Amino acid sequence: MTMKIGLGGGCHWCTEGVFQALRGVAQVDQGFLQSEPPADTWAEGVIVTFDPSVISLETLAEVHLRTHSSGRARSPRGKYRSAVYIFEPNQLAEAERAVRRFAEEAAKEVHTQVIPFTGFLPSDERYQNYYRTDPSRPFCRRYIDPKLDFIRREYADIALPSK
């Protein structure tokens, strides 16, 4: 059985690469996510399809919070909304618990919203699997590689081996 969760907060190329590097993640769809007003503008993000018997929603949310600027209150035109988009009402408590625990451990205010998922528009095909198709791109080396190094170091038990 798989579940879905949406995650947004930074460039979806980076977010896609991070979650493709984790065990238990079956698929990562990159694009633009939408929620209910006032979060109904399209924002960059991913939909992660995962096996909760391998990786929990709480762990996915924690990885997300640690790999983007979750403490930043604003983003350009709302394009990088820091959010966990829930697909089912029973995901709310687990996602909120992860955000609250991260804020307490980091001892800082976190601006990540836990909001309902309402819509998805995929990115252009040429941007899909951005990191996997050419990890030597300057953008990948500068922004995605450090996040993957962090995953391999801090989440070695759930990180896939590097290729």
Score class of each variant (00 low, 15 high):
residue 109 E to F: 04
residue 99 V to G: 03
residue 115 I to T: 09
residue 123 S to Q: 04
residue 126 R to I: 10
residue 106 A to S: 15
residue 112 T to H: 03
residue 119 G to E: 03
residue 143 Y to G: 05
residue 120 F to E: 01
residue 106 A to K: 14
residue 132 R to L: 14
residue 96 E to F: 07
residue 93 A to Y: 10
residue 128 Q to W: 00
residue 146 P to K: 12
residue 119 G to F: 06
residue 131 Y to E: 00
residue 122 P to Q: 10
residue 139 F to G: 08
residue 137 R to F: 08
residue 107 A to Y: 05
residue 125 E to W: 00
residue 105 E to H: 12
residue 151 I to H: 06
residue 139 F to A: 11
residue 115 I to L: 14
residue 98 A to P: 02
residue 94 E to Q: 13
residue 103 A to M: 01
residue 117 F to A: 07
residue 100 R to A: 15
residue 106 A to Y: 06
residue 113 Q to W: 11
residue 139 F to Q: 09
residue 154 E to N: 11
residue 132 R to Y: 01
residue 151 I to K: 09
residue 134 D to C: 08
residue 117 F to Q: 00
residue 159 A to C: 01
residue 104 E to K: 15
residue 117 F to Y: 15
residue 114 V to Q: 04
residue 102 F to V: 02
residue 138 P to H: 05
residue 145 D to A: 15
residue 96 E to R: 13
residue 144 I to W: 10
residue 130 Y to H: 04
residue 93 A to E: 15
residue 132 R to S: 13
residue 99 V to L: 04
residue 123 S to Y: 00
residue 159 A to W: 02
residue 120 F to K: 02
residue 108 K to S: 11
residue 99 V to F: 03
residue 131 Y to Q: 00
residue 154 E to L: 09
residue 152 R to M: 07
residue 129 N to R: 08
residue 108 K to I: 11
residue 129 N to G: 04
residue 102 F to I: 03
residue 98 A to H: 05
residue 124 D to C: 01
residue 154 E to G: 12
residue 159 A to F: 04
residue 121 L to P: 00
residue 100 R to K: 13
residue 94 E to Y: 00
residue 142 R to Q: 15
residue 124 D to W: 01
residue 95 A to W: 05
residue 143 Y to E: 14
residue 98 A to G: 01
residue 124 D to Q: 09
residue 116 P to A: 13
residue 128 Q to L: 06
residue 104 E to A: 15
residue 128 Q to R: 11
residue 116 P to G: 08
residue 112 T to L: 03
residue 149 D to R: 15
residue 125 E to Q: 07
residue 130 Y to F: 13
residue 127 Y to N: 10
residue 97 R to E: 11
residue 145 D to C: 13
residue 135 P to D: 05
residue 134 D to T: 06
residue 118 T to Q: 07
residue 149 D to E: 15
residue 113 Q to V: 13
residue 120 F to D: 00
